[in-house]
Amino acid sequence: MRDALGRIQSVLLIGGSSEIGLAIVRGLPRIDGASVCLAGPDRPEMEQIATALGTEGFGAVRVLDFDACAPTDPKGFVANAFATEHDVVIVATGYLGDQATASQDPDMALRLIDINFRGLVPALVEIGQRLKTQGHGTLVVMSTVAGERPRVANYTYGAAKAGLDAFTRGLAASIDHAGVQVLVVRPGFVRTRMTAHLAPVPFSTSPDKVAEAVTAALGGASKTIWVPGILRWVMRLLRALPESIFRRLPA
């Protein structure tokens, strides 16, 4: 349960080695000894992270295997993850991939859709039910501004995230009367390992800034946030542009 000061007792991170996810976990207000559950495909890396979190004042840190590319038994996975209830659940898996490849290789295209959207759906369905039953908590789902209007540079990734974004907002509408907050986070370009090979673009941000924005929105009325916040208006403008002009914008 979150306490009177908004501090959490327990958090579940899906995408257990995600830089943004971990920045959010570390930035959340928490009681001393709060527990963490990391879920992802890369167990050795998550175990290292678990050890580090243990030295940062977290209490029990659990590591669970979860592969959005090859989900097996999502019901069992979520049941296991919810052996204790969670105040915050973060879904931060993400794979940008290479659009040039994905534009020509159907397998790669499908892989991007799987990791960023399809593979998460069964888990999200289960998590939604759990949160609805427990009647409290916040579900944070990492979307992206790239999902708001497709661009040549990353439309497969963008399409998958757009699917995730829409699915999550629908899920929100179906469970938020139960006292569950569902927060869709649409950052712009975030400087992480995933984007290290790309040149930064305007309105780029950092995992810590994303974490700050999530913490600020926690427990409030927000349903969708942009990081940085000005992107809310920039994207509104970009969505309104005629396609002919939009395509001529620099990538």
Partner: peptide, 22 residues
Amino acid sequence: PPGDGAHRQALTGWGRTAPTRA
């Protein structure tokens, strides 16, 4: 009973912190 979506009410204590629905 939980499962039926309607009529959950947000409650807090006198300190008006940490509301939850029941």
